[in-house]
Structure formats: C-alpha cells, structure tokens
Design a protein around this nucleic acid. Sequence first.
RNA 1: GGGUAGAUUCCCGAGCGGCCAAAGGGAGCAGACUGUAAAUCUGCCGUCUCUGACUUCGGUGGUCCGAAUCCACCUCUACCCA
Length: 308
Amino acid sequence: MINSDNKVIFIVGATASGKSNFGLILAQALDSSIVSCDSMQIYRQANVGTAKISPEEMQDVDHFMIDIVDVDKSFSVSEYSAQANEIINQLHLDKKIPIVVGGTGLYVDSLLFPMSFGCNNDEELRKKLEKDLEEYGAEYMHNLLKEIDPQEAEKVHCNNTKRVIRALEIYYLSGKIKSETKELSKPMNYNTLLVVLNPPRKELYARIDKRVDEMFEKGLVEEVKMIVENSSWDAQAVQAIGYKEFKGYFDGNLTLDEVKNLIKLNSRHYAKRQLSWFRRYPFANWADLDDEKQYEEILSKILKFVQE
RNA sequence: GGGUAGAUUCCCGAGCGGCCAAAGGGAGCAGACUGUAAAUCUGCCGUCUCUGACUUCGGUGGUCCGAAUCCACCUCUACCCA
C-alpha cells in the first residue's frame, strides 16, 4: 500500500553513479514520475554531453525538468526551484511520490529546504561590479563587502569573486544583506527519503572514464559543434563539463584525445565536489548498489518509507 | 668504443655549498557553497611522539664546520661521433 502523503524520494550522487537507471526502476515500481535535478540537462540539445536519458530509455515514465531551456539561454536555481516544486506539488495531488533524480547540489537544496533567493540579478549592475573588480582587485571588493555585510565577508573567501559580487549585488539591489536573507533553521519542505548512490571511488572513476568514451562514440563532437553554433562559448550550457573542454580543440590547441582526457579529469573533480556536498546531509542514506547487502537495505528502507 | 647532457619527493619541473623537506605546476585527498553551481573558491599534500625531531634529491665513497648542490668511481637514460 502506498501512502504518498507529502513524500519525496531523492536519488542523488556523483556523475555516473547510476542515478538515472535506479530512479527509473523506482518510478516504475511506484507508478510515479521523475523530477530531474540537474543544472545542465535542463538544456535542449545538450544530450550526449550531459548523459541525458533518451526518450526510448524513459520507458513511458514521465521525466520533468529536462529539455526546458534553449542552449543559448541562462537559467537559475530560483527558476528551477519554483518550477520543480510546482511539479512536485502537482504529483502529490495525483497521489504520487515524486522521484527526484540528480546531482546538482544547490538544486537539490532548493527542493529540500525553503529558500529565499535574495533578488533578481541586474545585468548592468553586474557588469559594473565586474569592471570594478578588474580595476580595483579582489581585495578591494572583499573589503567593500566587509563594510556592508561583515558576516558574509567572513564566510566568503576574498578570491571567490563571483560570490563576493553576488553578495554586493544583493545589497545594492535590495538593500538587504545576504547573511540576513538566509533562514537560520531549516525545516524540510517534504517528508523526504534521500539516497546517495555511492560506488567505491575507484569504480566510480572507471565508470566516468567509460561513460566519456561512450559519449565520443555517440557523437559528442558533432553535438558540441551544433550547440556552439546555436549559442556561444560563453553560454551557460557550454560551461558544462563535456562541452567547454572542446574550446581548445576548435582553437587548434588540443587534440581530440587530450580533450577526452580533460573531460575525464574534470568529471572526476566534479564527482568529488558532489560527494562533498552530499556528505553535509546528516539524513542521507548512502548506498553502493553493486553491494548486494547495501542494495537490499536501501530497498527495504524505500519500501518502508512509501508504506508508512 | 669515444663524446656530451642528464638522473630531484606519485608525475612534470626549479634549485646548483648554509636561508631546503626542497620553488612552481599537475595528480591525489579533504572542505565551502542560497539567482552562472557540470560554476566558483579554500585547505592538506616525506615520516613522526609535530611550534621540535627524523629520513630523502640514481648508488658508493670523498672534500668541507656544513652538500640535492663540489670531487672520484659506478649504474642507468638521452643525444652525438664511430
């Protein structure tokens, strides 16, 4: 018996840890839908490089938050959060338990917890701040923040100029300071079961290598060409690992083989960062699905969660 | 067979008598993260009983108060001449 009451299952983990596949199995078993939680799979045309599930692979399971933005457009967490939460609510109305699947930590956070995202960003102001940064240096900008929002300045390293600029932006645009916009205590949005897929590190790295090789076989090079034609090297979508590395190749500075190795390397780095992020969740359930015992354990946890 | 260059910590690579456990980079590991997040940034990185001690810079001996740095021989590598 399934009781969907405000429940959401999160399947998260590093790239290539097997999220999509496991999520699909769950969605089928629970007769539910997938809500993708991935900052790059939102882009249309970015298929091979983001390891996006194909329509055939979806096997009639609905997948939301995939292919919702054109490759030349920007997107943000706040937009993601608004749309995805909307979908989750809708699924709840249908008595379904949404399966959130993805590896973008910040996006996962935006579903897990209530968040107030300061204010919109303003193109002109940002350009001005970036110019100031160039002119006066990182330390100057950091000192500026220190006067406005000492608490935030304390937390953000001087060299992390993007964060410093955003914090300044919030103040100039809204008059509020960033450290005040955050909620102190964070009640969870939903009745949540979160699973972090966690193959052994070596195994993970081997899977990443294999996946990157497959991407090349599936026509990554052509996809990148097309995407860059439809956007630019500066586009947000092209910041993704698997795309940005080709810049060197098209400029004639890297061989295809070097690009491939770079993509593998960057993917490993990324995977580590993802794991760092998920380790912050005290409520996370870590599982190596290839380990039979752990697989059983996680399945019974899920079973218990959906029934209770 | 002769000559030249070189062998540095996981890798690349600086050091060329004391300020050297040895610059810098890479890899690896750990961490931060609220509107670019597959982004951006930070820390550790010879060993230990860790504000000090110990063992390292191809090997063995030597010079010197003191050597990764100088000398001798040896081993290996690269290139050149035969």
